[in-house]
C-alpha cells in the first residue's frame, strides 16, 4: 500500500507523513520527492527544516532542474535580512505565485518540510484553511507534508489529518535500518483503507517494502502462543450435548423442596407417635414472655 501511495498520481491528493522523535520521516519524504522527480513532475519544496544541499544530497541529479527549493531554512522569520521565503508568506496567493514558475499545474507536487514549523507560527485554523485552498485550488496535483506529531496537541494533529487523503505514520521497526509505516488512505468514494508495512530506504532514496511472510512479526507469534486453547487436553468435559443437557435437567437437586417431597414428608405413617396437647388452667402461656415459667 505504501508503494501504491508512492507511485500514485491521483489529483487533489494531500499526503501527511507523521513522525516522532523516535523515527524520522524525512527519509520517506525524500523518497516521495525522488519518485515525483522520476515521474518528471515539477517539485516545489517549502523547506524550513533542512538546507537545500542536505535535501538535494542523494537525489537524482538528472532531474534536479525540476526541483524548486523555496528557502525558508536560512531566514524564516526575517531576522538576518536575507530571507528568501519567510513563514509569514505561507499564504495561498504567495504560494500560487511561486508555483507559477512551473508550466504544467497537472504535474506539480508541493512538498512542505515541515508543517510543524508553520503550525508554530500560524493559527492552526488558518493553516487548515490554506491547505484546503491549496488542495482545491487546482494549481498543484498533490501536496506532501511532513508533520512532527509529538510537537503539537493531539487535536491539531487530528484536524490536519482529517484534511489529508493519506496519512502515513512512521514508527521504528523491530530490526535495525527498517521502520514501520502505518498507512491510512481515504479514497474519493469515502472508503478507508489501512495497512501496516515494514520498509527500508535505500541509498538512492527508493523504498523497499518487506513482505509480511519474510518478516515474522514477533508480536503476532506471541499472540499465537497465548491464544493456544487451554481447554484442549482436559480430562473432563466442558460442553454438553443435547442428550446430556436433557438428562441433566431431569435430575432433581437434593435440597430443592419440591411438591412431591413435601407431601411425602407430611403424609402420616402408620404406627408413628402423635402429640396430643390440651391446655389446662395452669398453662397460662403468655405470648409476650415465653420464659415466664422459668422463675429466674
Amino acid at each position: 500500500m505504501l508503494l501504491d501511495v508512492l507511485q500514485g498520481s491521483e489529483a487533489g491528493g494531500f499526503i501527511v507523513i507523521q513522525d516522532t522523535i523516535h523515527c524520522s520521516g524525512r527519509e520517506l519524504l525524500k523518497c516521495f520527492v525522488n519518485t515525483a522527480l522520476k515521474r518528471e513532475d515539477a517539485v516545489h519544496i517549502l523547506g524550513f527544516e533542512t538546507s537545500e544541499e542536505e535535501l538535494r544530497n542523494g537525489l537524482d541529479n538528472n532531474c534536479a532542474l525540476k526541483l524548486h527549493f523555496h528557502n525558508g531554512y536560512t531566514d524564516p522569520l526575517g531576522w538576518t535580512n536575507c530571507s528568501l521565503f519567510t513563514v509569514k508568506q505561507f499564504t495561498t496567493e504567495h504560494i500560487g505565485q511561486l508555483l507559477k514558475k512551473s508550466t504544467n499545474p497537472k504535474a506539480t507536487t508541493l512538498v512542505i518540510d515541515s508543517l510543524s514549523w508553520i503550525l508554530r507560527h500560524h493559527n492552526p485554523v488558518t493553516v487548515c484553511q490554506r491547505l484546503h485552498e491549496l488542495k482545491k485550488g487546482g494549481s498543484v496535483k498533490v501536496i506532501i507534508a511532513l508533520l512532527h506529531s509529538d510537537l503539537h496537541q493531539r487535536g491539531i494533529v487530528g484536524s490536519i489529518c482529517h484534511l489529508a487523503t493519506t496519512v502515513i505514520s512512521v514508527t521504528p521497526g523491530k530490526r535495525e535500518r527498517s521502520a514501520m509505516a502505518k498507512t491510512t488512505r481515504r479514497s474519493k468514494s469515502g472508503k478507508v483503507m489501512q495497512d501496516e508495512e515494514f520498509f527500508n530506504v535505500t541509498k538512492d532514496y527508493a523504498v523497499t517494502v518487506q513482505s509480511r511472510s519474510s518478516y515474522p512479526e514477533p508480536r503476532q507469534t506471541e499472540a499465537e502462543t497465548t491464544e493456544a486453547d487451554p481447554t484442549a487436553n482436559l480430562t473432563f468435559n466442558l460442553r454438553l450435548s443435547e442428550m446430556e443437557r436433557e438428562a441433566k435437567e431431569k435430575v432433581a437437586l437434593p435440597f430443592v423442596f419440591s411438591q412431591e417431597k413435601k407431601s411425602a414428608l407430611l403424609k402420616p405413617v402408620k404406627g408413628s407417635g402423635r402429640i396430643l396437647y390440651e391446655p389446662d388452667a395452669n398453662d397460662d402461656f403468655d405470648q409476650e414472655d415465653p420464659d415466664d415459667d422459668l422463675d429466674i
Binding site: 524525512r26 520498509f199 530506504v201
Partner: peptide, 11 residues
C-alpha cells in the same frame, strides 16, 4: 545518531 544516510531509524 539521527538520520545517518539510508536508514530511517536512529542508532
Amino acid at each position: 545518531w539521527r538520520e545517518r544516510c539510508g536508514s530511517a531509524q536512529t542508532q
